[in-house]
């Protein structure tokens, strides 16, 4: 309990120090309060938005778009990645396609999605899906290739047939690398959903950012940035937790 308190304080102390400095430099007048409102004002705005349910409402929309897009992108990447990674002809066919389309920043497709899907959730979800698809596809292919051939030989020697070698050795062997692709996919999904909402959204956390900027609601802008940061922290903790659950054997510090 004592250690827990100490650990909490070790994390809290630097944050409180920065908040205090922030408050001071604005109050003294070193920084114009128009560009950076004092910490107390931003935190008050944050508390007000939380209390009114405004924050929850916008993040619920954003989280839904992100989750749906991630789920679509990740499942497509997994299915295709496993199919390609386990079959030579498919690998030969898809390798050039993946290599040619991978470097394209997927965000550039947003206008095309807008034309295809119209305004609303679908183009945003599509942008998230296509952005998560690539890192997970690549990590699935890398993961399958990274499995120690000695383990495949050992399994075969112990009597496993080809199907068993695939399911019991190749897939679990690839899982740690696939999971790190999932983590990267989750990070990209958050970036893309906010960016696309800023650009074409009519609701959601990204849209609130764009709106606050347009109407010079600077306290709202900062409060929303902090909220997105906190949302990101929760998201990554969640992904870490899922990784621990799925890959309990991996070495960890």
């Amino acid at each position: 309990m004592r250690n827990l308190l100490r650990a909490a304080w070790a994390n809290l102390f630097p944050i409180l120090t920065v908040l205090l400095l922030w408050e001071l430099v604005v109050r003294i007048g070193w920084i114009n309060a128009f560009f950076l409102p004092p910490a107390s004002v931003v935190l008050a705005k944050f508390a007000e938005m939380t209390g009114s349910g405004e924050l929850f409402a916008s993040f619920r929309i954003t989280a839904w778009r992100m989750t749906l897009g991630f789920a679509i992108g990740a499942s497509a990447a997994l299915v295709l990645g496993l199919a390609i990674g386990l079959s030579r002809p498919l690998l030969a066919f898809f390798s050039p396609l993946v290599a040619a389309t991978y470097p394209l920043p997927k965000i550039a497709l947003i206008s095309i999605f807008l034309v295809i899907f119209g305004i609303g959730d679908p183009p945003i979800v599509a942008a998230v899906a296509i952005s998560t698809f690539y890192p997970i596809l690549i990590s699935t292919l890398t993961g399958l290739k990274s499995v120690d051939p000695m383990l495949l030989k050992a399994a075969e020697d112990l009597g496993a047939n080809r199907y068993q070698v695939t399911v019991k050795v190749l897939l679990p062997g690839a899982l740690p690398v696939i999971m790190s692709g999932m983590k990267m996919g989750a990070a990209v999904a958050l970036i893309v959903v906010v960016a696309v909402e800023m650009y074409i959204g009519q609701s959601g956390a990204g849209h609130v950012l764009a709106w606050a900027t347009e109407f010079f609601k600077i306290d709202l802008l900062y409060a929303n940035v902090i909220a997105i940061g906190l949302f990101g922290i929760v998201l990554f903790k969640l992904v870490d937790f899922i990784e621990r659950l799925l890959v309990p054997w991996a070495n960890r510090d």
């Binding site: 120690d148 000695m150 383990l151 030989k153 050992a154 399994a155 020697d157 112990l158 009597g159 496993a160 047939n161 068993q164 019991k168 050795v169 679990p172 062997g173 899982l175 890959v247 054997w249």
Partner: peptide
């Protein structure tokens, strides 16, 4: 089976516990 190998670098399955590793041969059979 006729033969089973013990490898220099052990070749244990890292995602399986000791018990699951030892039971692997009978599991796949």
């Amino acid at each position: 089976p006729l033969t089973t190998m013990v490898w220099q670098k052990y070749a244990l399955f890292p995602w399986r516990t000791v018990l699951q590793n030892v039971a692997f041969g009978r599991e796949v059979r």
